[in-house]
Amino acid sequence: MTTTAARTTTAADTRGVSRWAAAIVLPLGPAAVAVLRFVLPYYTTDDTKAMAAKVIAEPGRGSAVLWFGCLAVLTLVPAAYAAGRLTRRRAPRLTLVALALLIPGYLALGWLVGEDQLLWSGAHAGLDAGTITRIAEAAHPTSAIAGVFFVLGHVLGTILLGVALWRSQVVARWAAVAVIVSQPIHFVAAVIIPNHPLDLVGWGLQAVGFAAVGWAILQLRNDEWDLPALP
């Protein structure tokens, strides 16, 4: 009876798989956004008509933005959750606040990618920049709300998560610093001094920091990562 129960528990133990899944997923989202921001055919500071005209001129880059945006939307929330699982025991309050900002912020990214979908679809359908602009500017108010959630959530949330990594000492100091400085660099490159290569560096630093978090997760024993499955 005991042997059978033990075998059932072992067979149902997927903690090793979940650790590997977390380690793989962690850097994918930030890396996808890093490339997205680098190939973006327009600057965030451009007006809607300029964005539409640039997507019409370079539809290939507009399409690449959508592919990488799709990957980011699918992986950023699981990545934040996985990182939070690593820091929550030693920095519970910081982790709670960081995830309360990051997860809604990352979920809101879907609305922003939807705007790029509209620009690309309009260009692909042969619409002129003026027509695409009128459609884009008639967007539902939830788009603006999602934009606020994304900007505040991912910038402040990433900084706080980086501080939680520093305080919990679950990764090397350089990895925590990479996460902390990544989004301030992105904010400068996106809003203050528009610069796609610098934006690549900002999000790239988060990807590297998150990769270090994934490596730390792989070093854990299953019992350190999660409770075993019930027989």
Score class of each variant (00 low, 15 high):
69 G>T: 14
69 G>I: 07
70 C>K: 14
71 L>A: 15
71 L>Y: 12
72 A>I: 06
73 V>Y: 04
73 V>L: 08
73 V>S: 06
74 L>T: 14
74 L>R: 09
75 T>M: 02
76 L>R: 11
76 L>G: 09
78 P>R: 00
78 P>G: 01
78 P>V: 02
81 Y>W: 15
82 A>S: 06
83 A>N: 00
84 G>M: 03
87 T>E: 10
87 T>W: 12
88 R>W: 10
88 R>S: 14
89 R>N: 02
89 R>A: 06
89 R>E: 03
90 R>F: 09
91 A>D: 13
92 P>V: 07
95 T>V: 07
96 L>F: 15
96 L>A: 15
97 V>K: 06
100 A>E: 05
100 A>W: 05
101 L>H: 02
101 L>F: 11
104 P>E: 03
104 P>Q: 01
105 G>E: 14
106 Y>K: 07
106 Y>V: 08
107 L>G: 10
107 L>Q: 06
107 L>T: 14
110 G>A: 12
111 W>M: 04
112 L>F: 07
114 G>T: 02
114 G>A: 02
115 E>I: 07
116 D>M: 08
117 Q>F: 15
117 Q>H: 13
118 L>Y: 09
120 W>M: 03
122 G>E: 07
122 G>Y: 08
122 G>M: 07
125 A>K: 01
126 G>Y: 03
127 L>K: 05
127 L>A: 14
129 A>L: 09
129 A>P: 01
129 A>K: 03
130 G>V: 08
130 G>R: 05
131 T>D: 10
132 I>P: 00
133 T>V: 08
133 T>I: 08
134 R>S: 13
135 I>M: 12
135 I>Y: 11
137 E>T: 10
137 E>V: 05
138 A>R: 04
138 A>L: 00
139 A>Q: 11
139 A>H: 11
139 A>F: 02
140 H>W: 03
140 H>K: 00
141 P>R: 10
141 P>G: 06
142 T>V: 13
142 T>L: 14
144 A>M: 00
144 A>R: 01
145 I>D: 00
145 I>A: 13
145 I>G: 02
146 A>L: 00
147 G>H: 06
147 G>W: 03
147 G>T: 04
148 V>K: 04
148 V>T: 03
150 F>Q: 04
150 F>D: 02
151 V>N: 07
152 L>D: 11
152 L>Q: 12
154 H>K: 05
155 V>G: 03
155 V>R: 02
156 L>F: 15
156 L>V: 15
157 G>M: 09
159 I>V: 12
159 I>Q: 04
